[in-house]
Design a protein around this nucleic acid. Sequence first.
DNA 1: CAACATACGGAACACGGTTCCGTTTGCCAA
DNA 2: TTGGCAAACGGAACCGTGTTCCGTATGTTG
Lengths: 186, 186
Amino acid sequence: MVDSTPRKRADARRNESALLDAAAATFATSGVDAPVRTIAAKAGVGVATIYRHFPTRADLVVAVYRHQVEACAAAAPVLLAAGPTPHAALSRWIDLFVDFVVTKHGLAEALQSDATTFDTLHAYFLDHLVPACAALLTAAADAGEIRPDTDAYELLRAVGNLCVGDNPRYSARRVVGLLVAGLRVH
Amino acid sequence: MVDSTPRKRADARRNESALLDAAAATFATSGVDAPVRTIAAKAGVGVATIYRHFPTRADLVVAVYRHQVEACAAAAPVLLAAGPTPHAALSRWIDLFVDFVVTKHGLAEALQSDATTFDTLHAYFLDHLVPACAALLTAAADAGEIRPDTDAYELLRAVGNLCVGDNPRYSARRVVGLLVAGLRVH
DNA sequence: CAACATACGGAACACGGTTCCGTTTGCCAA
DNA sequence: TTGGCAAACGGAACCGTGTTCCGTATGTTG
């Protein structure tokens, strides 16, 4: 099988990389919903160049956070093997996910938005994290620790929702802890 | 004590009422974030008239839903008196709140937005519902049914968050149920 | 080095919230 | 009844942001 992608132009690769750096920096300081023009300016390119490389904002966000999402997904089996019980592993894995989301300003909001712009983001997160979460849920259910009918998609969506608006008076971690506690059989 | 408000002009009162009707109708069909121009058009007034009567969008939303929020708050003591246990009353009251929020398109999103535009909405909901919820929480805690350190603001905020994106695949009611279950002492 | 496709930049457009300002209208007093 | 004035109005204008278009520049290949 031949490499069918005919290698992009050098300036295109340079710009794509500059955009990723600029986006990462901008997301960190101003949140994932920073104006497109800001990111373009920081990268030293025109706005159209963003759209050329990342058709939707979601593609850019995914590109920036891809590694962390994959690391999170990969942690699930590790925690399951390490943890004292499946429920403990589930709880720790969710902590990981919550930490990831709450530290990225605006990511939680973006995740819950059903606007077409963020479809890709939604799909990416779901594709990678739902299976990871489902494995933990199944293990915990098999161990009789939680009710067996819990849906991974629903749980992740709920946790993502709870991550919105984290601040000193509203601790996403704490309320997610309550939710996870609510999964247990009594 | 004299009536110090010098009675508004007749057309002003008429327009305010028309705006409330138009807003209620528009919110029901297009959500609370419907374009201002749409509401103005439906009410047969200019956009500036909206801002004159309702300085922020939140004021308009509050005006439309005021009665329902007050009814919800008023239901708390009734349920507490009626329910078999405080926790049951809490659970039912939260169901009431969830039903109210999920049936108003975009209300949950608006509630969690920390943008200045919705400060008034936030404040109104909090002022009315936090005390109602706190009473239920205290009663349940006194009865030893739930952990005693649960904060009404945090709980309401969490429930509001969970109401975002309700759809066949994600049931806000179900996940809120899990959260409320998680409040129980074990 | 010529020619061509690729990629670029920024102006232009769409759209929604908010404000401004010239005009109209209800109200009251003469 | 009417004259005057403050209250209220309508819609154009402004601003910020996402998205697209198009004339131009540039890397690549023969």
